[in-house]
Write a protein that binds this DNA or RNA. Structure first.
Lengths: 215, 215
DNA sequence: CGTTTATTTGACGCGGTTCAATCAGTGTGG
DNA sequence: CCACACTGATTGAACCGCGTCAAATAAACG
């Protein structure tokens, strides 16, 4: 339980951790709020968002299992964190984790790796936000979700998954409006690149074809 | 020399480091190129870029002194790195730095801090790319450069600095075209928010006024 | 079912791109 | 020292992708 750690690290943490369930839509941490605990995502998707004064919002990252939640070594959260789907967390009080890190270089190394991966992801997404068209943005997003739904799939194979985000969240992730998101999804459906069952269930008959549309 | 490290760390590195000067416009590392050395930026500005197949480009980060250049713990560079201005580097062979990191937890901790700061910056920039208007993007960029030119200045004070990027680079950083960048800079000049001497020298009579335009 | 909320669809306008021309700055050779 | 070319920046005009506003469906929920 509370996966993604080595057995030894686990033992040292176990005494301090606490499982927690959060329903979709609930906020886990507010922007510019004190960091008093960290959490491992066990199940579900958490969205990290930043807001502008006038209400504009941008989703700046999605956290899947087994990502660690919470900005290390900072007084305040730089983003807010909200459960995009129902979420299972493994919560650790701040002092417990920071002490473990301070005394276990391997632990810090592991977290460093995650931070660097998130940095790579963030920069990839900057390309999507800055340089891709609406259709490419949607395709890029669908590929991202598909790749996280059942890792280790064949390249061109078909794929089926459920969207963890509402149209509104997708819009805030891609820097678009809800209407444009809806229109582009409809467009991809019209081209036969994807099939929809209901509003969130997506079938991709040919992932390579989708990838080709992602720029 | 080769600043930003503690004396002890410095001593261990000194034997392996080599100073290097790179003229503006030269590439330091290609995208998807093997990482065989790291470098500390001593002076000047390095831009990190990612490209799409069809030539579209996005600047995904700027590195100022004393940032470390090079993706740790990865085989390949996720971005290309190019000298935006003339640059002074302090180059370290890959094995030397990685061994120092492996044996000096404090060193990894310091680099972790940089990685986390860069992640914060990247996410801030995602808001700029996804949700701000052209004018706000330009204002945000000018504030960023101003803040890096002479750190620790009074809030509303005037400020004068030289742009380290060409209009084309600015466009690729902000997800705009050169023409829009030019027009918005002209607009800010017309509003009296900035004054230009030549094409790169910028005077900001009131930083708070500029900040107010950054969204 | 009726009500509420999420999504889709339609019509229209605008911000930013595109394409094209002009202007400014910087070397370069006659 | 001045034409000339060359590169980078500005300016102009026309276009279009996406946003905005409004309405119609569809889905979720009591």
């Amino acid at each position: 339980m509370c996966g993604a750690l080595t057995p030894e690290e686990l033992t040292r943490l176990a005494a301090h951790t606490r499982k927690s369930h959060v329903d979709a839509g609930n906020e886990l941490a507010g922007e510019a709020t004190p960091v008093d605990s960290y959490a491992n995502v066990m199940k579900g998707v958490v969205k990290l968002t930043k807001g502008l004064d006038d209400g504009r919002q941008q989703v700046v990252g999605l956290q899947f299992a087994p990502d660690l939640l919470g900005r290390l070594f900072a007084r305040e959260h730089p983003t807010s964190a909200e459960a995009a789907t129902d979420v299972e967390l493994c919560v650790v009080p701040r002092p417990a984790l920071e002490q473990l890190i301070a005394t276990t270089p391997a632990m810090e190394h592991r977290l460093m790796q995650q931070a660097l991966r998130e940095l790579d992801d963030a920069r990839d997404w900057m390309v999507t936000l800055g340089r891709k068209t609406a259709t490419e943005k949607i395709a890029t997003f669908l590929v991202l979700i598909a790749d996280h739904s059942q890792p280790g799939h064949a390249s061109g194979a078909a794929r089926s998954f459920e969207l963890p985000l509402s149209r509104s969240d997708i819009a805030d992730f891609l820097g678009l409006t809800i209407e444009t998101v809806s229109r582009q999804i409809t467009r991809l459906r019209g081209l036969g690149v994807i099939h929809l069952s209901g509003t969130r269930q997506v079938d991709v008959p040919d992932m390579d074809r989708l990838r080709a549309m992602a720029g």
